[in-house]
């Protein structure tokens, strides 16, 4: 049973990791705290459901979740951060909470507050290795999540855009002087951040069947915990943080009581902030 629980934990953790990476991109790199980040997870889940209901195949749903959540993230940047770029970091942060309330209620109006479910994918494929069973969906999730993690890692380290993002995060003024458009870099970063959360949302719905418009808050908080554990601004740290939280949560439920789960996670969060706020893997350019 233990090996099965490890696989369960890694699958869950890989979706947390996607949320955490998006979080850490915006916070660690742009120094902006988007408290509606969890809602992007929710928006992605519902976008995936809406597209799948139209009869589209799985990859189309994934792309739609990616795009819509990315665009909503850009909308958050344009309405909560950009107009308040000269205020302290507190005002936009609170504005994102209000934006989150709006998103929750809009989705609730259009999809209902009862749980929505991803249409049956019709796949009953299962990989059986000894006592372990891994379903096709789990494989899709793991492959997509890890594919995206590696992709984003390469994107940040090897591409012009990645260089621009890192330069902007180190010194926005110098970067601008060198011809990098800070506003454009910010918007694209938000897009990628939201898109990853959206994919995570869709993947989660796919395997765990149902979502409600109110799941975003917890997903956002868990993403934040994973981000802090991994070290603010460190993408690889966020991945490891996400996987760690997934494992902790699964093991807690398997061998302890689910009632204590959030207490355990938030206690770890609190302890990290007090004892090791820089996280397990401090970013080079953390502020």
């Amino acid at each position: 049973m233990f090996e099965q629980q490890v696989i369960n934990g890694i699958t869950l953790g890989s979706t947390y990791a996607l949320v955490a990476i998006g979080y850490t991109l915006v916070l660690g790199v742009l120094n902006k705290l988007n408290l509606a980040h969890g809602e992007l997870f929710m928006v992605g889940a519902f976008t995936g459901i809406a597209v799948a209901r139209l009869g589209a195949p799985l990859p189309v749903s994934l792309v739609a979740a990616f795009a819509v959540s990315g665009l909503v993230a850009v909308a958050i940047e344009r309405s909560c951060f950009y107009p308040l770029r000269n205020a302290s970091f507190l005002s936009p942060m609170l504005s994102t909470i209000a934006f989150g309330i709006l998103l929750q209620n809009l989705v609730s109006q259009f999809f209902g507050s009862d749980p929505s479910r991803f249409p049956d994918t019709g796949s009953s494929f299962q990989l059986t290795l000894g006592t372990l069973t891994v379903s096709a969906i789990h494989i899709v999730i793991l492959a997509t999540a890890f594919g995206l993690m590696i992709g984003i890692d390469l994107l940040i380290r090897k591409t012009r855009w990645g260089i621009a993002v890192r330069a902007t995060s180190d010194d926005a003024e110098t970067a601008a002087q060198q011809g990098m458009h800070p506003s454009r870099v910010t918007m694209t970063t938000f897009f990628v951040s939201g898109a990853l959360a959206g994919v995570a949302g869709m993947l989660t719905t796919l395997v765990y069947s149902q979502v409600t418009p109110h799941i975003g808050i917890r997903q956002g908080l868990i993403g934040m915990v994973a981000m802090v554990i991994g070290g603010l601004g460190n993408l690889r740290g966020a991945m490891i943080g996400g996987l760690a939280i997934g494992l902790v949560e699964t093991m807690n439920d398997a061998y302890f009581s689910a009632g204590y789960r959030d207490l355990v996670i938030f206690a770890i969060f609190f302890a990290f902030l007090i004892v090791k706020p820089e996280g397990l893997f401090p970013a080079h350019h953390s502020r």
């Binding site: 309405s79 107009p83 308040l84 005002s91 936009p92 504005s95 209000a98 934006f99 709006l102 998103l103």
Partner: peptide
């Protein structure tokens, strides 16, 4: 939600 975001702007 809309009013809060708008007021902040």
């Amino acid at each position: 939600g809309v009013i809060l975001v708008g007021l902040m702007i």
